[in-house]
């Protein structure tokens, strides 16, 4: 056997990392090759010495890493009172309204997400986004982490940002957007459990029959949020009492949901109140392509 083929294997031979046949071949070779014996001795010396060059990590390294992983929370003052904001490295995990003390929040957090959160300072851009959303302004873009929720809940919640600020949509509309038009009740349940209200605007979803509807933190708060976003809530109540779901336009022959920005541009003289999809179809109107009012389940 030639040295060139053996010598590259000496180190693995030393470490016992060679397979049986290779090991035996090297052992046979070095039995009568003084050069390889010398080389092996030097490799062994390096291997014996090198571990002394190991270095211990600084004592605070573990704590520094741990400080950045896991869920954290803090409180943010908003126009609707204190909001508890929880977050991890992936984004905001919860916004909780209506609790004065941290204990109420932390137990709600553990109940809803099954995780513990540790108190810490909320990043400034998260504070700003939550405050803006509560004021009815367009919030700064911030990452939101709802990755632990069931897929359908995620689909429902992630469809919410498609409702423009200043407008509302029925539950059935959202169910359709989330890909399950018949799961209207399940959609309602997902919204009631929305861990990130304000930023995922579940307050913009209203009963199919009209009006403002319920909210996890009370219908008064919902009404206030919508009004700050520019939704005419009194008008929604009136339309609900009159049994009006859509607004049609006599000049374009298009019908919209009442808060659609296209519906609001219709001249008063051209406005036609419509009770349902059937009435709209009978009048020869087509659904608006922006607010997509035709409810498949309807």
């Amino acid at each position: 056997m030639r040295c060139e083929t053996m010598i590259e294997q000496l180190d693995e031979f030393r470490a016992g990392e060679l397979g049986r046949p290779e090991h035996d071949a090297v052992a046979a070779h070095i039995a009568d090759c003084p050069d390889c014996v010398a080389a092996l001795a030097q490799i062994e010396r390096v291997a014996a010495l090198a571990p002394q060059l190991r270095i211990d990590a600084p004592a605070d390294l573990v704590a520094n890493v741990l400080a950045h992983v896991g869920d954290q929370y803090g409180s943010v003052e908003t126009v609707v009172g204190p909001a508890w904001v929880a977050f991890n490295r992936r984004g905001i995990t919860m916004v909780y309204l209506g609790a004065d003390d941290a204990t109420t929040f932390t137990s709600a957090y553990a109940r809803r997400l099954g995780r513990q959160a540790r108190q810490n300072e909320v990043p400034a851009r998260y504070v700003q986004a939550v405050q803006q959303a509560a004021q009815g302004k367009v919030p700064a873009r911030v990452p939101i982490d709802i990755s632990g929720l069931p897929p359908f809940e995620q689909a429902v919640l992630l469809s919410l940002p498609r409702i423009p600020r200043g407008e509302v949509r029925p539950y059935a509309w959202l169910a359709r957007e989330a890909g399950r038009p018949k799961a209207v009740r399940a959609t309602g349940n997902a919204l009631a459990r929305n861990p990130v209200p304000l930023l995922l605007p579940c307050h913009r979803v209203v009963p199919t029959s009209g009006g403002v509807g319920n909210y996890a933190f009370g219908s008064t708060m919902k009404r206030g949020l919508l009004e700050r976003e520019g939704v005419p809530t009194d008008e929604l109540d009136t339309l609900a009492r009159q049994g009006v779901r859509y607004i049609g336009c006599t000049s374009t022959h298009i019908y919209c949901l009442p808060t659609c920005h296209d519906a609001r541009r219709v001249q008063p003289a051209n406005r036609v109140p419509l009770a349902n999809d059937g009435a709209a179809a009978a009048a020869g109107y087509r659904p608006c392509k922006h607010c997509k009012p035709a409810l498949i389940a309807g």
Binding site: A57, L61, V62
Partner: peptide, 22 residues
Amino acid sequence: DERGAVERLVQSYQNQLFGYAL
């Protein structure tokens, strides 16, 4: 996300990785 898993991860490899980075 098991409790203490990240701590175990860091403790297992911090000396090697820090020494290498240094």
